[in-house]
Amino acid sequence: MIKQALLGEFLYEAENTRKILNAIPDSVLDWKPSDKSWTTGQLASHIAEIYNWYEYTFNQNTFDMGIYQYDKGDISTIQNIVAKFENNVSRAQQVIEGSDESTYFNEWKMEMNGKILFAPTPRVQVIRGFLFNHLYHHRGELVVYLRSTGNKVPGLYGPTADDRL
């Protein structure tokens, strides 16, 4: 039952992520709102990369960021970023579909070079927080990036100010 709920949300939200990534024109990939912020391309790539973390979250008890190879990929075009997203989201869906619900309440943690970054927590809580909510947070940032650069924002949960009703 939990798996089906997670999969349903995953599929719905993957489509929303697809919409927002496809709304980004190449002309704004280097734009960022402040010196401390990522560029639009870096943020979009990070969103695509989150889907690469499903294997580590669903099938391992420890995600060691010290050995994880983050690959932002070629972020020179939105087409490249969307291709990375499509590859990662397909693999993530397979991970969810093949996951064992009996492990959803096992403890999971994240560490880097022996230092605990994410304390032992039930896996299902990590799936909702670290994977799902983390992604929604960054998508929200991307909405602000699109607005700030004068681009239209697609409706994710209904019409936006760009939609004429």
Rank of each mutant, 00 (worst) to 15 (best):
residue 30 D to M: 07
residue 107 E to A: 15
residue 118 F to I: 01
residue 9 E to Q: 15
residue 19 K to H: 13
residue 87 N to V: 04
residue 128 R to P: 02
residue 77 T to M: 07
residue 97 E to R: 10
residue 33 P to C: 02
residue 112 M to F: 06
residue 149 T to W: 00
residue 156 L to M: 14
residue 49 E to F: 12
residue 70 Y to W: 11
residue 128 R to M: 07
residue 88 N to S: 08
residue 22 N to F: 04
residue 118 F to Q: 02
residue 29 L to C: 10
residue 111 E to K: 13
residue 88 N to L: 07
residue 150 G to I: 09
residue 60 Q to N: 14
residue 83 A to C: 08
residue 55 E to G: 07
residue 120 P to V: 05
residue 4 Q to V: 08
residue 3 K to H: 01
residue 31 W to I: 00
residue 111 E to S: 11
residue 65 M to I: 06
residue 154 P to R: 09
residue 123 R to L: 04
residue 92 A to T: 07
residue 129 G to K: 09
residue 18 R to G: 01
residue 133 N to H: 12
residue 159 P to S: 02
residue 60 Q to G: 06
residue 60 Q to H: 15
residue 52 N to A: 15
residue 150 G to P: 11
residue 87 N to T: 05
residue 41 G to N: 05
residue 8 G to L: 06
residue 15 E to A: 09
residue 154 P to A: 11
residue 94 Q to P: 06
residue 44 A to S: 12
residue 71 D to L: 13
residue 75 I to A: 14
residue 37 S to R: 02
residue 57 T to P: 14
residue 106 N to P: 04
residue 49 E to A: 11
residue 140 G to M: 02
residue 81 I to S: 04
residue 63 F to G: 03
residue 64 D to T: 00
residue 5 A to R: 13
residue 122 P to Y: 05
residue 158 G to H: 05
residue 4 Q to H: 13
residue 27 S to H: 06
residue 82 V to H: 00
residue 142 L to R: 04
residue 79 Q to T: 14
residue 95 V to P: 14
residue 102 S to M: 07
residue 118 F to S: 01
residue 39 T to S: 11
residue 129 G to D: 11
residue 14 A to S: 15
residue 8 G to Q: 11
residue 162 D to P: 02
residue 30 D to V: 03
residue 71 D to N: 15
residue 57 T to C: 14
residue 154 P to K: 08
residue 67 I to Y: 12
residue 82 V to P: 03
residue 124 V to K: 14
residue 149 T to V: 04
residue 37 S to I: 02
residue 39 T to D: 00
residue 96 I to F: 15
residue 8 G to N: 15
residue 24 I to Y: 02
residue 69 Q to G: 05
residue 158 G to N: 06
residue 66 G to Q: 02
residue 94 Q to H: 15
residue 18 R to C: 03
residue 144 V to P: 01
residue 63 F to Q: 02
residue 142 L to M: 08
residue 64 D to H: 04
residue 122 P to E: 11
residue 127 I to G: 07
residue 22 N to M: 12
residue 14 A to I: 08
residue 108 W to T: 03
residue 18 R to I: 05
residue 8 G to W: 04
residue 30 D to E: 12
residue 54 Y to T: 03
residue 83 A to G: 10
residue 126 V to D: 02
residue 127 I to H: 11
residue 132 F to H: 11
residue 52 N to L: 03
residue 67 I to P: 06
residue 140 G to A: 12
residue 13 E to N: 15
residue 61 N to L: 09
residue 111 E to L: 11
residue 153 V to P: 09
residue 29 L to V: 09
residue 115 K to Y: 00
residue 40 T to G: 07
residue 155 G to K: 10
residue 12 Y to P: 03
residue 105 F to N: 12
residue 158 G to E: 06
